[in-house]
């Protein structure tokens, strides 16, 4: 439960002179739901891209499951599922076909993939045998399909980048419950990035507060619950104003 699974060490990403991510040190432990909270442009997505080896850090290192993401991105991506913000699917394929394509890219045996895809569709609450193409899916359905897509490779870690943006409140609640269930049943480690204070507060065990490319503070669950040191105060101290609302 306490072994570190994501380790960032002095991680920095610069675009020209601008530091998108500035010397971040962070450890996420196995089995926890870690929230990355911060306003737009805080460096959340860039940090995530570096964890997956989709962009190279200027300096510092990232290790996921003990593997260097910059040197061996392929091995990292075998173990990490990533749900990008506003995920897209191939519009002319059905939901299950999209899932099977991902499974094939992960070298999963065709029969196992079929069974797994059906199981996952059921789990995320999408209709099973429908001829509906992914292009006709609503935003909320796409996001659910995205979660199934992330899970089909049996990941150890899932990284969700703003997974709830654009879903209605009831949908958000279901989505969050699903994430918590997954953690509890499968022992997944979840990295949850968001700019919604209340969502992060509700689901996460620990939270990292990002702002201007820096990790401003780390808050754990006890502090999350206590009022005066709570996340809300912290958020207000750094970013001012009331609760963040869209």
């Amino acid at each position: 439960m306490h072994e570190p699974i994501i380790e960032l060490h002095d991680l920095t990403k610069q675009y020209g002179k601008f530091s998108a991510v500035d010397r971040i040190n962070l450890t996420v432990r196995k089995g926890e739901i870690f929230g990355i909270l911060g306003p737009n442009g805080a460096g959340k997505s860039t940090t995530i891209l570096m964890m997956l080896g989709l962009t190279d850090p200027t300096s510092g290192d990232v290790k996921v499951c003990g593997i260097d993401s910059t040197r061996n991105p392929i091995q990292v991506r075998e173990k990490v599922g990533y749900l990008p913000e506003d995920v897209g699917f191939y519009d002319d394929m059905t939901g299950i076909e999209n899932l099977l394509y991902t499974a094939r890219l992960n070298r999963i045996d065709e029969k196992k993939a079929q069974a797994k895809a059906r199981e996952l569709l059921e789990r995320v609450g999408l209709p099973l045998d429908t001829k509906k193409k992914a292009g006709k899916y609503s935003r909320g359905m796409r996001q659910r399909l995205g979660l199934a897509d992330v899970l089909i490779k049996n990941p150890e870690v899932i990284i969700l980048d703003e997974p709830t943006s654009g879903i209605d409140p009831a949908g958000v609640q279901e989505f969050m419950d699903l994430i918590r269930q997954l953690r509890d049943e499968n022992g997944l480690t979840v990295l949850f990035s968001s700019h919604h204070l209340d969502q992060v507060q509700q689901i996460c065990d620990r939270v990292g507060l990002f702002g201007g490319g820096k990790l401003l503070a780390e808050v754990n669950i006890e502090e999350l619950q206590s009022e005066e040191h709570g996340l809300e105060n912290m958020y207000n101290r750094y970013f001012g104003g009331g609760k963040s609302h869209e």
Binding site: L54, R77, E78, P84, D86, G88, F89, Y90, L105, K153
Partner: peptide, 14 residues
Amino acid sequence: NKGTLSRVLSQPIH
């Protein structure tokens, strides 16, 4: 533009 590029490239492929 469809948002599939980052999804496909986050799979374990070169």
